[in-house]
Design a binder for these strands. Structure first.
Lengths: 368, 368
DNA sequence: GGTCTCTGTGAATCAACTT
DNA sequence: CAAGTTGATTCACAGAGAC
């Protein structure tokens, strides 16, 4: 088996072939994100693995045991996840998705392979298929697992981007939106749906925006009709897809070809917000205002109007020692560590103004 | 070890002792439902997590949640689940719950023990603990698995009860409601929370209403402060609890002692609705009386004489949204779901008449 | 008594960098 | 590598207290 030594040659290509076989050819520590929507195990009684869309998955035909073909599915899962661990960069992330049929197999094996789980996400479908016979609760969710290579991984999480996309509140682990339908849903030449389980682009958008940076490489070993590739291109990321079904590959290539990457302006609004206002810039700015004698004070005050000497390095001086504005709270509050931004005030003409408010004012007036 | 041969002697008692040891004493095929909220094996870091105001966050750091390894946790899980399989009646149901820390272990083992999964449920918390440091998505869900002894089990599912509780639409697999807090949350003598992970009664209510019949026996091997017992008593079911912590047992006994079972009238409305009479017939009849101008009102009133607009579909309109008479009580009673029939009044010439009484009148005069 | 403000808190695998 | 330093970070409720 020939190893591709240059990951760049695979960028933005769909590899036609068996997932496991092709994974083995990809260089180690070469991709930033892996998204995997693997075939799931349907107990057909015949011991055959099926994709969730009912197509046969070829390449596994082994023993049976007391666990039935769960064991077969587990072995398959271990193999491709082991390859993924090799291929992923040390600080990269992996996402897998599934339903109760397979998600426990996935999660169990992920944990046994010493991956480190960051979040479990519930995708709540707004328009699930009803339960026609009224025998159980409507299956209205699918589950995702976001995990990394080790506990010490420094993975990407675009916290502010997510917060911004959620009405300026922290994004949560339950995501609610519709299944893929309408124009987004690919049709074959007869007008029938091309793929039974095409994922909504919105799902991939959120995953990619949350856990990758611009120009990152995203691998999808079960590429299907190429939702991952389409969204990656749209958001200025690179993709690598592996797919065994030649018809899917054909449609996926055409689909991705037609995708337009978003404009830089739009892009900055959803993505760059993380780095736009670097708080570290703000504090020296306050100090400069003091230096330039625009804020006529040398002291910070707490709510009891106790004062502390502020030096031109932005430090609080107490008994000839320097402290950060945060650390200094410990000395004024009997060892209680508080956020200095919300503790200290500056006195301006008999008015006491929280330095956090000043910071925000600067942020608005001078950095936009 | 002595086996209790008569399950009736255990009914509505809390057994003080080790879960696994006590499970072994319970007769085979003797209970209708098992609800298990086992330790989650959280593996929190050694550090202290501070809130932004400098206070420490007090999470779960209990001895009962500590295990040496996944292997140890898995062995523990296999043992108690194996006992549960023996104890459960052939057509009984089991519910377990957890988070990503343990739910994959549970699901994997459940499937390996040849249980049959019916649904995976996501409990979406409306008010989860935020992520204090902005490091990942807010963990706002817990996961439940509902499963039975075999594929051929004829388990109880009160389909219409569930539908009725969900505005006459099929109940789905994502359940949204708050964590346990306020008066419901048990406090110790110092006013601190008694148990770090007390579950909301609403959660148990839904499980018990969905998957048991009146007078069924419900076993909870990790009884804690007795939420399962309290709700069982309230809904005219029997419970058996096992709990190792003597303080929890003391509080749980007192708690359950104070629970009043709901009145038969209310009970019939939430539970027997499956068969007693079809609400669809009765309710339109009231609407017709309004349409025909025999009931001269467009409003329903609660006992505080707050009014709600009733439209001709029989729905209550609030801010352009439609609600069932039951669902609307949540908005008037701070999230408390009540039986709308016994909550809303119609005003007739300065007299307020409960709509349930009107319904019964119709029922007697026109439908008998 | 009603309304507003302030405070407390919940199953958490919760940082990054320098010395 | 361990210890110390700097600095970034929260939402929905309930309940108490103020006005």
């Amino acid at each position: 088996m020939k190893m591709n030594t240059d990951i760049n040659k695979l960028k933005n290509k769909i590899i036609l072939g068996d997932s496991l076989k092709e994974l083995k050819k990809i260089p180690s520590k070469s991709v930033d994100l892996i998204f995997a929507d693997p075939p799931y195990f349907m107990q057909t009684g015949a011991g055959i693995l099926y994709r969730i869309d009912g197509n046969k998955y070829k390449g596994v035909n082994d023993e049976w045991d007391k666990f039935g073909s769960y064991k077969e599915y587990d072995n398959f899962t271990k193999k491709w996840l082991t390859q993924c661990k090799r291929i992923l960069k040390d600080n990269g992330s992996i996402w897998v998705m599934g339903t109760f049929h397979n998600i426990y197999r996935l999660g169990y094996i992920i944990q046994n392979l010493n991956f480190w789980v960051i979040n479990d996400i519930t995708w709540e479908k707004t328009n699930p298929t009803p339960n026609f016979r009224g025998t159980k609760f409507v299956n209205s969710n699918e589950n995702l697992i976001w995990f990394v290579k080790s506990k010490n991984s420094k993975f990407t999480f675009n916290y502010k981007t997510m917060k911004n996309l959620n009405d300026n509140k922290q994004m949560r682990s339950v995501w609610k939106f519709p299944i893929c339908s309408g124009k987004e849903r690919l049709k074959d030449h007869d007008g029938n749906k091309l793929h039974n389980t095409q994922k909504p682009e919105k799902l991939l958008e959120r995953i990619i925006l949350a856990t990758t940076k611009r120009n990152d490489i995203i691998l999808d070993p079960f590429f299907g009709t190429g939702t991952t590739g389409a969204v990656a291109k749209k958001l200025h990321r690179n993709f690598i897809g592996i797919e065994n079904n030649i018809e899917y590959v054909k449609y996926a290539n055409e689909r991705i070809h037609n995708v337009k990457s978003i404009q830089d302006d739009d892009y900055s609004l959803i993505d760059h917000i993380n780095s736009k206002f670097d708080q570290k810039i703000i504090y020296p700015k306050i100090i400069n205002l003091i230096k330039e004698n625009k804020l006529k004070t040398k002291y910070l005050y707490n709510s009891r109007k106790e004062k502390a000497l502020l030096n031109l390095e932005g430090k609080i001086e107490i008994n000839k020692n320097e402290y950060s504005i945060h650390k200094a709270t410990e000395l004024f509050e009997n060892g209680r560590y508080l956020n200095g931004w919300r503790y200290w005030y500056i006195k301006i003409e008999d008015n006491y103004i929280l330095i956090d408010d000043i910071r925000k004012g600067i942020n608005q007036s001078e950095f936009k």
